[in-house]
Design a protein around this nucleic acid. Sequence first.
DNA 1: ATGGCTAGCCCGGCTAGA
Length: 259
Amino acid sequence: MFKVVTWNVNSINVRLERLLALLTREKPNVVLLQELKCLEEKFPFEAIQAAGYECSVFGQKTYNGVAILSKRSPTKVLKGIEPFYEDSAARVIRTLIDDTMFICCYVPNGQEVGSDKFQYKLGWLNGFKKLLKDELDNHERLVVGGDFNIAPQDIDVHNPALWKEKILCSTKERNLLGEISQLGLIDTFRLHEKGAGFFSWWDYRALGFQKNEGLRIDFILASNAMAKTCTSARIDRDERKGEKPSDHAPVIASFESPI
DNA sequence: ATGGCTAGCCCGGCTAGA
């Protein structure tokens, strides 16, 4: 059995103690991190390696930045979405661990439907879809997790009327996410939970978490071969509590097969 | 109707997030 976590930490250095506690608590085999908000040279390698994890890091100053932590050493590490899309931001990292491909993504936010950043988001997602198709053609065992910045359905939104056709919920974004799942990628959370009201992000402002006004925008997707072996998937909502939380909670999936 | 926090950057007020 192995366990995968995805978590948008909103600054790796601010969240380091929480991350180390999560590694101790959950003992995941693989951790997909987004929004490091630092260059590779500022990444806290030492503390994470001391906890028993290899770090594959694609950093960027101030914004973005993604990493994959793993107990086992990857045999291959690829940084960036290129050549499937031209991007100056650090939003994708891939590691091959034994015969399983792990992909960590931080999808652009898009800011507002119709804006330049929205167009960038749509173009980026088209490129990412091509990347995923390419990897699925080569790896039957594939897991892709991250902050997708799209709530797939109204049940993933605390107030669908308020969010109707807004950023993260628009038809264009949802259709692109649908095209990605049609490649043969399954939202592991929905294998185990069909209900509404489960979120992975809550706004820092206006008591968003306390009122459970959130969105489910972070996922662990698995290829068919992997999804068949997925024994559980959940959101670690407690991680959003207490002092200095990220605005995202970790998503955790377990698989029966080894890596 | 607006903004409400948080983080990083260069040092108080900006960008960005979602």
